[in-house]
């Protein structure tokens, strides 16, 4: 996909730019960087630790984000699946089955998914609708913590921890209220792919 490749290239260029001279790396700047770099494809690896299972389950695949609101997650392992979040509509396809959900009807799932989309989009408003943000680290290596501010979200999420460098997100780590945990790691996709 050519435009996507272009955006990726742009992302990589942006990521290697020297950090700005000033030392104060603010949420606003982070969001601007994220928004500027938004779009394109990344590979992901997700490790889910679930209480009922003795070991973590791992899935791999690719995520595509098309600003402002379309997030696609194509899982290759352990089984093929496509999840598309477009605006308020979430549709999941697997095994020839098709589920359609509306995020409004599932506010808790919505908060989780929106935290990923909001981060990738650099959408501070969307993030702050459900979370309190705190930023640490430098432009080159920042850490963003999302603490639920909406009590309904707090029912299922303890905290979300995001790490990255400039406009690139490297890790989203979601700790759920029931102790289950999901760690999503992103790596840029080689341009030749």
């Amino acid at each position: 996909m050519k435009p996507a490749a272009l955006i990726c290239a742009l992302m990589l260029v942006l990521a290697t730019l020297p950090a700005a001279a000033d030392t104060s790396w603010t949420v606003d700047e982070l969001m601007r960087s994220l928004a500027a770099a938004a779009g394109g494809r990344v590979a992901f690896v997700e490790r889910k630790s679930i209480a009922i299972l003795d070991e973590a389950v791992v899935s791999r695949g690719e995520m595509r984000f098309t600003p402002p609101a379309r997030l696609e997650r194509l899982t290759r392992e352990p089984s093929e699946e496509s999840m598309v979040l477009d605006g308020d509509r979430l549709s999941i396809r697997r095994d020839g089955r098709h589920f359609d959900l509306e995020l409004r009807n599932h506010p808790q799932a919505a908060a989780l998914i929106d935290s990923i989309r909001g981060t990738l989009a650099g959408d501070r408003e969307a993030l702050e609708a459900s979370f309190a943000l705190s930023l640490a680290g430098s432009r080159q290596a920042w850490r963003l913590d999302l603490l639920p501010s909406d009590p309904r979200v707090a029912e299922i999420v303890l905290r979300i921890h995001v790490e990255g460098s400039a406009g690139r997100v490297a890790l989203i780590d979601i700790l759920q209220a029931d102790g289950d945990r999901s760690q999503l790691r992103f790596t840029p996709i080689d341009r030749s792919e």
Binding site: I50, I52, D180
Partner: peptide, 18 residues
């Protein structure tokens, strides 16, 4: 089912498994 748990729909089926 375990595969499904790993997927994006995992959240929806997690409460059912036991």
């Amino acid at each position: 089912t375990i595969d499904l748990l790993a997927s994006s729909a995992g959240m929806l089926v997690k409460p059912l498994i036991a």
